[in-house]
């Protein structure tokens, strides 16, 4: 994309979210959209993260709490199923982990450099309540 300096930038500028005509965006998922270069979807905030959420689908009950409360549209849900985390746009806030109702949680925060396979193999066991 062309990068303009502040003094070359016209007042009243218009940015287009999509290339070409875009209709029925409300029913088109991200993979079928024709994003333009000026859509922030094409950028990444992955370097903001210190910790990343990892998803263990064995414990997920598809309640979609993480989807509704994710502030960064980073929980990918298709056909009522949670299928993963969009690591390009996740800022690592940890809300998804806090709202996850399962026991053990199906989303947990790990350090950014944590290997996913190792984390999944060492996933915590179910916590039993002490009486």
């Amino acid at each position: 994309m062309e990068n303009n300096g502040w003094n070359e930038f016209e007042i009243g500028a218009m940015l287009r979210s999509f290339d070409g005509a875009a209709t029925n965006i409300a029913t088109t998922h991200t993979e079928d959209r024709n994003y333009s270069n000026s859509n922030s979807f094409t950028a990444s905030v992955a370097d903001w993260r210190i910790e990343k959420p990892l998803f263990n689908k064995d414990y997920c009950i598809d309640c979609q709490f993480c989807w509704i409360y994710c502030p960064d549209m980073s929980i990918i849900s298709r056909d009522k199923k949670m299928i993963g985390v969009d690591m390009d746009h996740c800022k690592g806030c940890g809300i998804c982990v806090e709202v996850c109702p399962t026991n053990p949680k199906s989303l947990l925060m790990y350090a950014e450099q944590q290997d996913e396979d190792v984390a999944l193999a060492e996933w915590p066991e179910k916590e039993t309540k002490e009486k």
Partner: peptide, 22 residues
């Protein structure tokens, strides 16, 4: 919520709001 989660967002990620912004 399951039915709601089939919606396609019209607000994109990589905006610069703080992590955890409501």
């Amino acid at each position: 919520l399951k039915e709601f989660s089939t919606s396609a967002d019209r607000f994109e990620g990589a905006n610069l709001l703080c992590p955890g912004c409501a």
